[in-house]
Amino acid sequence: MPPIIELKGLKKQYNPPDGVWAVKGVDLEIEEGEIFSFLGPNGAGKTTTISMISGLLTPTDGDAIIAGHSIRREPMAVKRLIGVVPQEIALYPTLTARQNLTFFGQMYGWGGRSLRKRVDEVLEFIGLTERANDKVKTFSGGMKRRLNIGVGLLHKPRIVYMDEPTVGIDPQSRRRILDTVKLLNEEGMTVLYTTHYMEEAQELSHRVGIIDHGVIIALGTVGELVQMVGEKDAIRLTVQEVPGNLIEALKAIEGVGEVTVGDGTITVMADRGRRALPRIINVADDAGVRIESVKVEEPDLEAVFLHLTGRALRE
């Protein structure tokens, strides 16, 4: 079976000829039934890529074939197959949940009783039946997010793109949305998901593409990606201040790889971290640093990103 989504050398430059190259050449194949995640920091090019394969932006170069249709040559055929959940809450605040769903349903060519029935189904699915006739502007952030997703599912698409669907909401709503994604996938939907939360990518995805500065820098299952880091553990120290010479001293310890400093934390990548831990604490002590807490973490996607770029996923 050919892949359901195929990106071929996709590139995008905003405001040519001098503008930013937001996407610098992405090749990717996604199989039907997969949950695939783009994991990358702000400005990595996730939204730009999604916009190109949704037919919102014309690629500067390259093409995408969605279920056999070229996004360049047959955009309407592609649009019938895909559901898009934008990063922004793309809803009319003065319309009710039902009116929003109905309007966009009509834009997909639905109407009459079948649309009414489908709107009810979707409201039920996203748990907003009781608020169906309330204006969207009266909704909480989590409810808006859910409706934002609901609109993307309305026409029963084969493929759904979700661009950071959990930004800025409480843990409970996020849990609900992640479960929704899994449920949709179990029903056979192919999901292209973007996030900068590595926990989400890790939990949901069959495969993850780590994207940075407009290119995919690593691609594979979570297990495959983590192996790239080797046997390294991430040791996270919470400290009050970081003297300048501490980083160098830590790096000098045998078995320690990258050391990065975030907001009040130092992350030390070390082979078999637990063994290096006493030495690390000694060095910190010598430098006169007060350690408030220590956490040793198994390698995760965060560590992979750090390993590949020397930066934390979220600064």
């Binding site: 916009s51 949704s54 037919g55 919102l56 309407m76 649009k79 019938r80 895909i82 898009v84 934008p86 990063q87 922004e88 809450i89 793309a90 809803l91 009319y92 966009f104 834009m107 997909y108 060519g109 609109v151």
Partner: peptide, 13 residues
């Protein structure tokens, strides 16, 4: 507000 883009992702020229 991205509702325009949302319309543009529907099969509408």
């Amino acid at each position: 507000s991205w509702t325009l883009q949302r319309m543009m992702t529907t099969p509408t020229p």
